[in-house]
Amino acid sequence: MTTFTGALRSSLGKKYLMGFTGLIWVGFAIGHLIGNLLLLAGREAFNGYALFLETLGHGAGIYVAEAFLLMAIGIHIWNGISVALVDKSAARPIGYEVTGNAGGRSRKGAASQGMIWTGLAILGFLIFHLITFKFAYLFGHVEHYTLNGEQHVDLYGVVVERFSQAWYVGIYTVVMLLFGMHLKHGVWSAFQSLGLLNKKTTPLAVQLAWVLAVLLSIGFLFLPVTIFAMNESFATPAGGLHL
């Protein structure tokens, strides 16, 4: 009989891994969004939050979390390419001249068929996102502030400066809409992939997917657009949103 690790390489196993790692990242995205909302509270609050994360567990916490997330997304991408590109094209070498949609109870659509493309767009964005924020200090000068005699990156300043640039906010907006599409199919699909759904719970999971897709995509969009539109308020020394 197949072992569990062997089973993870089967067609079903790939989907357990996709679903599991996808949901880990959905969890991260929710936490990340809530944390980012501190941008509205101002420079001190946001930088304090960043420092809190960096110093969690004497500075080890963030590395553990990063390694975990990196592993999860690596597994997600590896299996995503396997399912949606490699196995897919191998299983139907000659395609149809005409493709239709049966309608009715089918959930096939732009979101479900575009998973690999919205996913790869997210991947491209993630790399770009890390370069412009997390590793900004490697690619140019960033402001620092001093706290208890120690120098720290003024991450708030980096973010607000980025979000004053229209092209950056534009890219951000497009990718967040694609991210929403990925979640609209991805979230309910993950539960189905893990074998957790039945006839009654499937419509609920589909609704949950809609809600999370809208909340996360609009939520992540809201920050750059607001900071762009109200840059004068955000760029003050205290920062944050003053209405």
Partner: peptide, 17 residues
């Protein structure tokens, strides 16, 4: 899997046809 069928992406088109 051995016979070369693809993996399921939960499109649900099967149920509809």
């Amino acid at each position: 899997d051995r016979l070369g069928f693809g993996d399921c992406s939960n499109h649900g088109e099967c149920e509809a046809v």
